[in-house]
Amino acid sequence: METKDTLKIAGVELSSRLFLGTAGYPNQSLMTEAVVASGCEIVTMSIRRVSLDRRGSDTLTLLKSYRFLPNTAGCETARDAILTAELAREALGTNWIKVEVIGNREMLYPDVVELLEATRHLVDDGFVVLPYCTDDPVVCQRLADLGAAAVMPMGSLIGSGMGVANPANLELICKRSPVPVVVDAGIGTASDAAIAMELGASAVLLNTAVAKADDPVMMAAAMRYAVEAGRLSFRAGRIPKRGRAEPSSPQFGLVGS
C-alpha cells in the first residue's frame, strides 16, 4: 500500500505534508513539543523589528533542526514584502519565502496585484517563492507562470478556523496547478486539514488551530494524522457520491427468503 510519496518543492524532498506556524502558543516549550508532535519539517517564522524591551526569542535555537520558511506577514505593498524577504534571507540564510501581501487589515485578505509584483521580483532575485494567495485558479496559474515554487491558496480567512470555504475552487486549483498546492490559512480542526488533502492539496500550512487549541500538542498530533489520512484517501480514490443506498452485503441467501 505504502509507496514512496514525497512532496518536492524547488527540488527539496519533504516527507511531511504539514507545515506548522510557530506563533501564538502559550509558551515556547509547548510550541516546541507541538512542532515535534506534528511531524513537520517546515516551520514558519516572521521577521520583526528588534525590540529593546523584549528579550530575544530563542525560537531559532529551539527549532534549529527544522527548515525555516520565513514570511512577509503584515506587509501591504510589494516593496515592503520584497525588503522583508531580503532581510529574512540575510537573517536566516534561506532563500525560501512565504510571500504574504495583505490588501485589507480587517480581513487579512491577500492583495493579488501586489502579490504578483512581489513574486515576479523575488523569483528574479533567486528566491524560492511560496505565495499566500486567494483560492482563485487563475491567480494560482499566474503565480505559477511567474515561477512560484508552490502556490498557497487560502482555505478561508487567516485565523478564522472556517476550514476550506470553497472546496470546488480548491479542487480545481489542485487539478490544474503545475506546482504543488499548499492550503494555507483557515484550518480550524483536523477534519479541515483532511478535507484539504482529500481535495488534492499537496500540503497544508496551519498555525492558529494548533497554537490556540486547548491542548496544542495533542492537536498537532491530530493534524499530523489528518494530513496523512487525507493524503492516503486522495491517493486511494474515493467512491462517487450517489443519492440512493447501495447494499454492501450480498443480496442472495437472505435468511427467511
Partner: peptide
C-alpha cells in the same frame, strides 16, 4: 535604519 530578526510567525 531597520534592525530585524526572526520571531515566531505563521
Amino acid at each position: 535604519i531597520e534592525i530585524v530578526r526572526p520571531m515566531q510567525g505563521g
